[in-house]
Nucleic acid binder design. Structure first.
Length: 306
DNA sequence: AAGTGCCTCAACCGCATCAGC
DNA sequence: GGCTGATGCGGTTGAGGCACT
């Protein structure tokens, strides 16, 4: 045991009194009440003063991850998921740093999301999460589909016309500088594409948030235009969209296997052929988007399932 | 209904850093 | 400079819930 751990635990006598495991309602209310009266910080002292048989660290964690009033509960929105993907591609496993850009979300929550959802997808694709190939897949497939879902949601809900106009404008602005003509696969859409709908061009051309979102803003009404306009660009490598996969029999094999990629933990054989490639040669032009629509539309990249 | 396996997420652990003495 | 306490961070664990058989 490290010296710091010994310090944290204190004497055996104290250690034996310490509670572990799930917090009870009584403990929660004690902590809430104490912080309401005295404020947060000085966690070890707080734990003693509030007569909580918990370590200061445990109190701090409980407060920051669960009890704090501005904690948002519930599933991550597509906007939040997109932000996480973008920020993680930028910063890696800097969970607390990423969390600072998602008001009301905790580093623990984001870390859990990444491990249980994103890394699971990587495993199912037989891609090492964090690898170049995985990052490319995230940027070129996952993000576009999140953007698409965001737009679908916004068009289905009573999104303000002003917000939608901003989004349309930003799409025009962002697409004007693009050269690719690839077709990003659409999710099966209940409604036909409309003006400003995510298209191939802007799916292939992302922006990354460069600064924190205004904490006072509500991410649920987060403007899509902000996401598309701000900061540095992430552009998919040309070969991701432009190579003709059908020239390659090994890739044929890989695509033939994509039917195995279920969204929810379906078992699948490891795809040995993929290991010979640094980056999957995704193709949208020559084969259309049929394969990805067939294989991912209702499975892997269906954000509803995420 | 019971058993089993999988998934999620709250909580814990170990370590690093910083400030005060 | 070394010690100690407080805090923060990222990785890991395991209880509980859920789906499936």
């Amino acid at each position: 045991m490290s010296s710091s751990t010994k310090r944290e635990l204190g004497s055996n006598e104290e250690e034996s009194e310490l509670r572990r495991g799930p917090w009870t309602l009584e403990e929660d209310s004690l902590l809430i009440h104490y912080i309401a009266c005295h404020g947060e910080g000085r966690w070890n002292m707080l734990a003693k003063s509030a007569e909580l048989k918990r370590t200061g660290k445990s109190c701090r964690l409980r407060w920051l991850n669960y009890l704090k009033p501005d904690i948002k509960r519930g599933n991550l929105t597509p906007q939040e998921q997109l932000l996480i993907l973008e920020l993680h591609s930028k910063w890696g496993n800097r969970w607390s740093k990423i969390a600072r850009h998602l008001p009301g979300r905790t580093d623990n929550e984001i870390k859990n999301y990444w491990r249980t959802r994103v890394q699971k997808q990587a495993r199912q694709l037989n891609i090492e999460s964090g690898s170049r190939r995985f990052i490319d897949a995230v940027k070129c497939f996952w993000m576009p589909r999140l953007l698409q879902k965001m737009e679908q949601d916004s068009s289905l809900s009573s999104y303000s016309s002003m917000t939608h106009m901003n989004f349309s404008n930003s799409v025009e602005a962002s697409t004007s500088s693009m050269s690719t003509t690839s077709n990003i696969p659409y999710l099966p859409s209940p409604t036909p594409p409309q003006e400003g709908f995510i298209d191939a061009a802007n799916a292939n051309h992302f922006s990354i948030m460069s600064g924190p979102i205004n904490p006072s803003s509500d991410l649920d009404s987060f403007k899509l235009s902000q996401l598309l306009e701000i900061s540095e660009q992430v552009t998919c490598p040309p070969n991701v969209f432009e190579n003709n996969v059908y020239n390659n029999p090994i890739q044929d094999n890989w695509y033939a296997n994509t039917n195995n990629y279920g969204m929810q933990g379906q078992n699948m054989e490891p795809l040995q052929v993929m290991e010979s490639y640094d980056i999957p040669q995704f193709d949208f032009q020559t084969t259309g988007s049929d394969w990805i629509l067939d294989n991912m539309g209702d499975t892997l990249w269906n954000m509803d399932a995420i």
